[in-house]
Simulated scan of single mutants.
Amino acid sequence: MRIYLEADYAAMSRRAANLIAAEVIRRPNCVLGLATGSTPIGTYENLIARNRAGDLSFREVRTVNLDEYKGLAPTHDQSYRYFMQTNLFDHVDILPENTNVPDGLAADADAECARYDALVASLGYADLQLLGLGRNGHIGFNEPDDHFTKETHVVDLTDSTIDANARFFATRDDVPRQALTMGVGCIMAARRVLLIASGADKADALYNAVCGPISPNCPASILQLHGDVVVVGDEAALHRIVEAGVSVCR
């Protein structure tokens, strides 16, 4: 596991974008696993700028997103399909048919999960999987539990996750209570994992993910078993890890 310490959110976003861009340049038809939430927005802005400058093309790239709210249409302004369109896909030269997000409106959610698992497997899994980190240590919507779930599945969101996402909705009651999420099996099958975190509110979760025991109580801790993980965080998110004497790249 390599850990990059950046001064702030902007520097973290540039570093993450550099790593993703290098993957696309090295392998133009790569499969990118993508994440939503506030943390990757700056990373996507950097990638858009490179595409517009002619330095980076997504024409052959295929993407698979981690998750989607159950019950939200792709056109809902808080759906993750909508997020990806407005924060990345609509602004770069990626082909729409090469972008994949779980269907939150599927009549049979379990069948949709099985379909999505098969789709990701048919692509050979992600060459690079981008992950954010929840305050409770979740990755995708894999919430703290008594076991790791391997397959894409429907998950009940915890109160802490609902609280964290309530700022994006008119009221807390509007936040969906369930989501479809890629399981840890799909995430761990990625050739490389890029975990990004920003802010002091992520410091405990990041410390537990990197330095704590491997436990489903902190889903991100499973990444300790992956052979190629890169962590990029700002000083606020990484301060506990630095204080513990863990080696970081500056």
Rank of each mutant, 00 (worst) to 15 (best):
A200M: 05
L180R: 07
N142C: 14
F148A: 12
I139N: 08
F58C: 06
F148C: 11
S247D: 10
H138R: 01
N65F: 13
S122P: 09
P74H: 11
P96T: 05
K150C: 12
D55W: 01
A111K: 15
K70V: 15
R135A: 04
A35N: 00
A49T: 13
S215T: 15
G199Y: 05
V24Q: 05
P40Q: 00
S122T: 05
S13V: 00
Y44S: 03
I196V: 10
L131I: 10
V231A: 05
G104P: 11
V101F: 04
A164E: 11
V248I: 12
A49W: 01
D93E: 09
L194C: 04
C113W: 05
Q78R: 14
G233K: 06
Q178H: 15
A35K: 10
A17C: 00
E243G: 04
V92C: 10
E6G: 00
E235V: 13
I25L: 14
F83V: 02
E243D: 11
H239V: 01
A109T: 15
L194D: 00
A197H: 03
G124A: 10
A189K: 12
V175L: 07
S38P: 00
A220I: 01
E45R: 08
N100R: 07
P102C: 09
L105A: 11
R15S: 01
Y80V: 02
L56R: 02
K150N: 15
H91W: 00
A190V: 08
I48G: 00
A107H: 13
I241S: 04
S160V: 15
M182G: 06
H226C: 06
N18Y: 03
G212N: 12
Q85T: 09
A200I: 12
L206H: 02
V210L: 14
T99W: 05
I3P: 13
M84I: 12
G124V: 05
Q178A: 11
D163A: 15
Y9G: 08
N208P: 00
T75L: 02
T161E: 09
D117P: 06
P40T: 00
D67A: 05
S215I: 14
T99Y: 04
D228M: 08
E97T: 05
A203P: 13
S38H: 04
D234Q: 04
T158P: 00
Y116N: 11
R172G: 11
